[in-house]
Amino acid sequence: MTTIYGIKNCDTMKKAFAWLDEHGVAYTFHDYKKAGIDSGKLHAWSKAIGWKSLVNTRGTTWRKLSPEQQAIETQSAAVQLMQEFPSVIRRPVIETDSGQLLVGLDTALYTSFLTATGTPE
């Protein structure tokens, strides 16, 4: 089962939900705001794709952080920041049972991914 991680009221998430629904992709939703996100998951993602790919440095949450909070240089510091401020995690993060990760709204990548995994469009 595919899991999409993010925040329900985010416009990007709404677009991702609509795309997945239109293409008949079955998924479960994990809301960071309600359920949080454990450090083990964030460390695994960071190891797989790099923590810099996960941190949204263009959003309002990031801009509200102090320069000291923004001065992250290690995976551990990034994971701690993402746990404390889940809105700073790029959205969506889509994870499959096979552990493949798609980060951000990229419908071309989604199409390629769905074709590669054999999920009907």
Rank of each mutant, 00 (worst) to 15 (best):
residue 19 W to G: 07
residue 26 A to F: 11
residue 100 Q to M: 09
residue 115 T to S: 13
residue 78 A to P: 01
residue 120 P to I: 10
residue 56 N to W: 08
residue 97 D to E: 14
residue 91 R to V: 06
residue 54 L to G: 02
residue 70 Q to L: 09
residue 119 T to M: 05
residue 7 I to M: 09
residue 115 T to G: 03
residue 113 F to V: 06
residue 40 G to V: 14
residue 35 A to P: 00
residue 94 I to F: 04
residue 116 A to S: 14
residue 99 G to Y: 08
residue 16 A to L: 02
residue 42 L to M: 08
residue 10 C to Y: 08
residue 118 G to S: 03
residue 31 D to S: 04
residue 72 I to R: 01
residue 49 I to P: 00
residue 67 P to K: 04
residue 18 A to T: 12
residue 26 A to E: 14
residue 64 K to F: 06
residue 101 L to F: 02
residue 19 W to E: 10
residue 63 R to F: 08
residue 69 Q to K: 14
residue 53 S to A: 15
residue 47 K to G: 09
residue 74 T to Q: 13
residue 121 E to P: 04
residue 10 C to A: 12
residue 92 P to C: 01
residue 97 D to V: 03
residue 70 Q to E: 11
residue 109 L to E: 15
residue 17 F to H: 06
residue 64 K to Y: 11
residue 57 T to C: 04
residue 60 T to V: 15
residue 4 I to W: 00
residue 23 H to N: 14
residue 44 A to H: 09
residue 89 I to M: 06
residue 117 T to L: 13
residue 14 K to E: 09
residue 1 M to R: 06
residue 56 N to R: 12
residue 19 W to R: 05
residue 86 P to G: 12
residue 14 K to C: 03
residue 69 Q to W: 11
residue 5 Y to V: 08
residue 105 L to W: 07
residue 60 T to C: 07
residue 105 L to I: 05
residue 113 F to Y: 10
residue 2 T to D: 04
residue 102 L to P: 01
residue 71 A to V: 10
residue 80 Q to S: 15
residue 65 L to T: 05
residue 3 T to N: 04
residue 57 T to S: 07
residue 55 V to L: 14
residue 69 Q to L: 15
residue 29 F to G: 00
residue 108 A to L: 11
residue 17 F to M: 09
residue 16 A to Y: 04
residue 14 K to I: 05
residue 61 T to K: 09
residue 121 E to R: 14
residue 67 P to C: 04
residue 116 A to H: 10
residue 107 T to H: 03
